[in-house]
Design a protein around this nucleic acid. Sequence first.
RNA 1: GGAGAGGUGGCAGAGCGGUCGAAUGCGGCGGUCUUGAAAACCGCUUUGCCCGCAAGGGCAACGGGGGUUCGAAUCCCUCCCUCUCCGCCA
Length: 428
Amino acid sequence: MLELAYLRADREDARARLSKRNIDADALLAKALELDEHRRSTQNALDSRLAELNELSRSIGELMKGGKKDEADAARARTTDLKARTQELKEELDAAEKALHDHLCTIPNAPHAQVPPGRTPEDNVTVMQEGAIPELPADAKPHWELGEEYDLLHMDLGVKVTGAGFPVYSGQGARLQRALIAFFLDQATAAGYREIIPPHLVNAASAFATGQLPDKEGQMYHATVDDLYLIPTAEVPITNLYRDEIVDRAKLPVRLVGYTPCFRREAGSYGAHVRGLNRVHQFDKVEIVRIEEPEKSYAALEEMVAHVKGLLRALELPYRQLLLCGGDMGFASAMTYDMEVYAAAQKRWLEVSSISNFETFQSNRLKLRMRGDDKKPRLAHTLNGSALALARIVAALLENNQTPEGIRIPKALQPYTGFDMIRKWTAA
RNA sequence: GGAGAGGUGGCAGAGCGGUCGAAUGCGGCGGUCUUGAAAACCGCUUUGCCCGCAAGGGCAACGGGGGUUCGAAUCCCUCCCUCUCCGCCA
């Protein structure tokens, strides 16, 4: 949620930035300011009535104490109309605040000045690309075939146990999964991130604060009996650790990392391009989260990108960095880089990380503030990024590293897997 | 799941119908003193919104919501949460 103070103080800047999302920024802003105007005038009226009422009550108290019962009764009689009026105004204010809040919830974050214009993924800017694209023989197999062949991955078993899009990993496939998680966590920890194991279900307040509600309601699994949501990313519980907090500036930046499974309904996504691990309902991800001073958040964003690049390099995967255009960015983000790896058998790029600066969009909902020298609390900036999302990394690793002898494991991962090659499994 | 107790400021902990945004202690910040530090002493120390250039002023908040009352942290209802005991259990 954008800050009202910002919209009021710098409407032109807000309009210019929001326009990159190809929305009618003018209309949205005009309505917001109009609703705000109404809210303020209502509150002014209410506050004056309440002040009168408070004054009357005080005087009644004194009159009672002084034994002047008649005068007290007279004053008491005068409160009746005032009370009725405050009641009306109170209801009006509640309605005005709700209308304003609801409207603000429909406005996406304002893209940063550097975000390129555009409507579709075609308009994203490739910032850089690195790593050789493997030349595979014509009979190279996509990861879902390799998964079955080497007994690593079974989509059909997931269907039996749960439903489509719930992968089952087995043998060296399961071990590879665990190795990647441990590797990513160790790398992040070495880079100064503090490890967190958060809950995998969150309440509605948490889902709202990071922007999943109400914007992406249908994306989350909802456990209705307890009104809890399965997390679509560790970002939700980890960022919410700091909800309603005022962090001392000396404690910034906050750097956190957490591994969790992620659950996404991905309703309506079917077809050949989502086969295998390309898009699933449950996947593992290591997420990094940062809380920063506003002045430092974009430097932090670049640091996070550099960290992720280091991981991809260590995994010897060809990758590219995309700066998302205004039309392709997430609702809550002010600037997003996507990292994609090349899956050589499918001959396509797969998104394995999305690294975003939310500026104050989340912290405004979170009420996550920092206290600087001026001792007046101000909203902090929040950022997060995948480092990394496993399912697609596994897909690329399997495809790119297939050889006639087996599937090669990158050197950096070998201490974690305990093997350097995935081979056909046979019962001993 | 059953029974009981309780939710107040950064923490501990008073208040139980009127000037209480809230005693007191601890912590924190500033100052006096000191060569320096400690101790002692003095002062300050929640947040949001509104009006105002500012100085300053107003409103709201004592787990959430609702009610009684001229007036509620204090009384009533309801929901949530925490703790203790019992049950169940990885």
